[in-house]
Amino acid sequence: MVPILVFDIETIPDAEGLRRLHGHPESVSDAAVVELARQARRESHGNDFLPHYLQRVVAISCVLRSDAGFKVWSLGEPDEPEASLIQRFFDGVERYTPQLVSWNGGGFDLPVLHYRSLRHGLTAPRYWDLGDDDREFKWNNYISRYHLRHIDLMDLLALYQSRAYAPLDDLAKLCGFPGKLGMDGSKVWEAWQQGRIAEIRDYCETDVVNTYLVFQRFQQMRGVLSRDACQQEMALVREHLQRLPGEQWQAYLSAWQEGA
């Protein structure tokens, strides 16, 4: 089978980048630098979410489904530098040439990874291949919005209409899956400041499992999987999660409705 790599990232405001762009002295704390940028953003855009290129990646979590089975994990170590985390992700694409699956990956995760890779001088030749080295990639690559080598489920299910976008948490719960448990993206900066990186990684991992489960329903809907095959895949995921340590997986399994 073609390996399937579901991914999700968690980010915080890039205090170092803001300091560089706006000339804040070292005596100004990271929290103060970020708050100044958020205030300016609220005044100019009506919300305080900083643009993609000023998002620093602090976690990348993945589900890999391949002939070897099912695996969910976060890349690298909790204190690993951003550049190393991102390079690990693209090295995985280089190694497996997987089908990438995301929820809003085309709108957020991948643009962030592009900008941060550019900043750190990283390389990702397989990911950026548009057919120059492999002709198959001319008509099916990771970059084109309408190709399936990367499926942004949120974008595709909405038929590329932003007014039809659905939150992953809501759709997962409507399908009987657990959805988000105790944290969401708006709480990551606060958790990071408090040193709760393990919680951020746990949250990111549950999100990629949610995405994988919704993807299996999508595969059933489009006829790639039969109903029985989809249920077998759900059973495989349940069995794998039952073997994992961590309270988040116990809570996740408890919130997963029977038969979903």
Score class of each variant (00 low, 15 high):
residue 112 V to M: 06
residue 112 V to I: 11
residue 113 L to V: 08
residue 113 L to M: 12
residue 113 L to K: 02
residue 113 L to N: 00
residue 114 H to M: 10
residue 114 H to G: 05
residue 115 Y to H: 13
residue 116 R to I: 07
residue 118 L to C: 04
residue 119 R to H: 15
residue 119 R to K: 14
residue 120 H to T: 11
residue 121 G to V: 09
residue 121 G to H: 11
residue 121 G to W: 15
residue 122 L to W: 12
residue 123 T to E: 08
residue 123 T to K: 13
residue 124 A to C: 11
residue 126 R to A: 14
residue 127 Y to W: 13
residue 128 W to Q: 09
residue 128 W to K: 07
residue 128 W to H: 13
residue 129 D to Q: 08
residue 129 D to S: 07
residue 132 D to K: 14
residue 133 D to A: 14
residue 133 D to N: 14
residue 134 D to G: 03
residue 134 D to R: 15
residue 135 R to D: 11
residue 135 R to W: 15
residue 135 R to S: 14
residue 137 F to A: 09
residue 137 F to V: 02
residue 137 F to C: 08
residue 138 K to S: 11
residue 139 W to H: 12
residue 139 W to C: 05
residue 139 W to A: 07
residue 139 W to L: 09
residue 140 N to W: 04
residue 143 I to M: 15
residue 144 S to M: 12
residue 144 S to D: 14
residue 144 S to L: 13
residue 145 R to D: 05
residue 146 Y to V: 07
residue 146 Y to P: 03
residue 147 H to F: 10
residue 147 H to T: 12
residue 148 L to P: 00
residue 149 R to M: 06
residue 150 H to A: 04
residue 151 I to N: 11
residue 152 D to Q: 12
residue 153 L to Y: 09
residue 153 L to T: 00
residue 155 D to E: 08
residue 155 D to M: 00
residue 157 L to E: 11
residue 158 A to N: 07
residue 158 A to M: 04
residue 158 A to G: 03
residue 158 A to C: 04
residue 159 L to Q: 12
residue 159 L to D: 13
residue 159 L to E: 13
residue 160 Y to H: 11
residue 161 Q to N: 12
residue 162 S to H: 10
residue 162 S to L: 02
residue 163 R to C: 05
residue 163 R to M: 02
residue 163 R to K: 09
residue 163 R to N: 09
